[in-house]
Design a protein around this nucleic acid. Structure first.
Length: 150
DNA sequence: AGCAAGATGGAC
DNA sequence: TCCATCTTGCTC
C-alpha cells in the first residue's frame, strides 16, 4: 500500500495550486469522492478527495495489494498501472467512494497496519520545499510499493 | 491560438 | 536515457 498526500492550493505540486479549475474542481468538493486524471496522455491516476467541502486536498493511490491471490502485485504497483489493472478511467471521476452502490467504494477489511514509512513524493521536483516534504506514505511490510523505499 | 510541462511506464 | 501521447491551464 502506497499513497501520496497533496495538500491543496498551497501545495505547489498539487493540481489544486491554480485554484478550482475544471480539472481540479472535484478536489474542492466534498470528501470521499474519486479524483481521476489523465497523465502524459496515456496513464490514469486516481485520488481520494479528503478535505471538507471548499478546501482542496487529495490522496494519490500509488499502489495496492490485490486480495485476489492470482493477481500480480507488480501490476498493481504504480499509479498508472494500478488504474490500468482496476480499469479506472476518467468516467469514474467524481464517484462517491462512501456509497456501496458505486462501482468503486472504500470499506474497512479489518487489516491493521503496523509500521508506516514516509519519503518525498515521486516525480516531484525535489529542489523545492514541496518536493522535499515527506508526503509519500507506504506500509513498510507491504510488497505493493512502487519506487524506492526511502 | 499557441505552448510547455506533466503526481508515468516501458523500452534501449 | 529516451520517448509515446494528449490534456491542462497559462501566456500572448
Amino acid at each position: 500500500m502506497e499513497v501520496e498526500a497533496y495538500l491543496g492550493e498551497r501545495d505547489a505540486a498539487s493540481h489544486a495550486r491554480f485554484g478550482p479549475t475544471p480539472r481540479s474542481a472535484i478536489m474542492f468538493g466534498p470528501p470521499g469522492r474519486l479524483y481521476v486524471y489523465l497523465i502524459y496522455g496515456m496513464h490514469h491516476c486516481m485520488n481520494f478527495v479528503t478535505e471538507t467541502h471548499g478546501t482542496a486536498g487529495a490522496v494519490l493511490i500509488r499502489a495496492a495489494q490485490p486480495l485476489n491471490e492470482h493477481a500480480d502485485t507488480k501490476s498493481h504497483s504504480g499509479p498508472g498501472k494500478l488504474c490500468a489493472a482496476l480499469q479506472i478511467n476518467r468516467s469514474h471521476n467524481g464517484l462517491d467512494l462512501t456509497c456501496a452502490g458505486s462501482t468503486v467504494f472504500v470499506v474497512d477489511d479489518g487489516f491493521r497496519v503496523r509500521r508506516v514509512a514516509s519519503s518525498p513524493r515521486i516525480g516531484i521536483d525535489n529542489t523545492g520545499f514541496w518536493g522535499r516534504r515527506l508526503l509519500r506514505f507506504f506500509v513498510a511490510a507491504s510488497p505493493a510499493v512502487s519506487g524506492p523505499r526511502r
